[in-house]
Design a protein around this nucleic acid. Sequence first.
DNA 1: GCCGATTTGTCCGTATGTATC
DNA 2: CGATACATACGGACAAATCGG
Lengths: 240, 240
Amino acid sequence: MPKAKFEGIYRSIKQKIEAQDYPYQSLLPSENTLIAEYGCSRNTVRRALAELSDEGYIQPIQGKGVRVIYQPVGKTTFIIGGIETFQETARRNHLHAVTKVTRFETVVADEKFARESGFAPGDELWAVERVRYLDGKALILDVNYFLKEFMPGLTPEIAARSIYEYIENELGMQIVTSKRKMTVERATIRDEQRLDLNGYDCVAVITNHTFNSDGLMFEYTRSRHQPDYFCFQDTATRKK
Amino acid sequence: MPKAKFEGIYRSIKQKIEAQDYPYQSLLPSENTLIAEYGCSRNTVRRALAELSDEGYIQPIQGKGVRVIYQPVGKTTFIIGGIETFQETARRNHLHAVTKVTRFETVVADEKFARESGFAPGDELWAVERVRYLDGKALILDVNYFLKEFMPGLTPEIAARSIYEYIENELGMQIVTSKRKMTVERATIRDEQRLDLNGYDCVAVITNHTFNSDGLMFEYTRSRHQPDYFCFQDTATRKK
DNA sequence: GCCGATTTGTCCGTATGTATC
DNA sequence: CGATACATACGGACAAATCGG
């Protein structure tokens, strides 16, 4: 059940677009029509539309209407967008997921690592290395660093299950913002040892800074992906 | 000069954050303070803040304030984010850019290509292949398809300069939304012929669907990047 | 633990500007 | 030119979260 009104409207319209009830290239009902339909103010409708516009579902055209630009994606694509846990991603793609913890220890950030990661020198961190398997193939090598102070009770067993679930359900901490960088790097010896590289000499690397609901960075992660199952989606809008 | 009021406020605050006038981890002045400072309504301030939040500059905390989570990026990073022309990217990174057109012809979308690209079967398209050089190294192989009907006057000379400039300045057409997919693919024979791969056997591939201000898809592009200078940035916020 | 002040989150109604047809 | 549709802006109201006394 959506808490906010605009969210319900957002979901309703989104669903109709995905069901192609509002088909690709068609114009949505006008804002005034939607106001009448949902019994709300103009601002509330516009808020829902803004969200859909951000996600690349629609594009408003001043004086004309709101065009649907959503097209259903091919079912084979493996999407790593938004902030999603490994488990969520696996489930959505109907794949069997296994996680193996290959390192679990405490480290202290030195000057150099602080600059790289964004932590402060002297911060005590959990260093966790995990290999992710999908359908028996080792595809992702994750190296996470967590501020120890925020999760003193972390264990290898939790790391093998889902750290995010632990953070959100056990600790009641909310993950809000995630800043990511995507690059391609040559595979290291360690990549070759840990991953099924399938002949590739490169990996896709996602570097991640995660902030909790207090605006504090508590996680720094580098994920190294075997290229076959890696896909990253994005929508950008150009500033006027 | 910003047309809209909220945009001026957005830029002002953004600048202060980048100058670390509002430093990392600090709280912004409260909305009421900003209202007084900029002489505007609450909605207008909030609109500016929403934009900054989307871009990962700030994170609002209900009941507490708005935390700055922006940290200046290292100067070596080469960012290909937003919708930016090749020239804009080169200029921002102080690199000398050259473009060579290696293919320029008309094609008609068949059934298969229509499914891949999102064009309609039978659409007449410009097919343009270009190699991008930065500081003398061939780093990017672009293959663009444009709806011919929208740009009948396209020439190889324009393609060698800047097609986006032509579209926006000459044709007065506005580019609004761009949907992108990022993957990593094994380098092809053609990649090896055209690019300075520096020993890599992979390329980063960005697949792009571009919509104009009428919400019509008029461009489909696949850009193949040599890994060394490739970086893609993104900010995600988790839904409640 | 409670209360009140502060701060952000949501929603409403209205007015005016601008682009399209 | 007028009607319609989206864009911007204002002001007000109440809810929800935080924090200090």
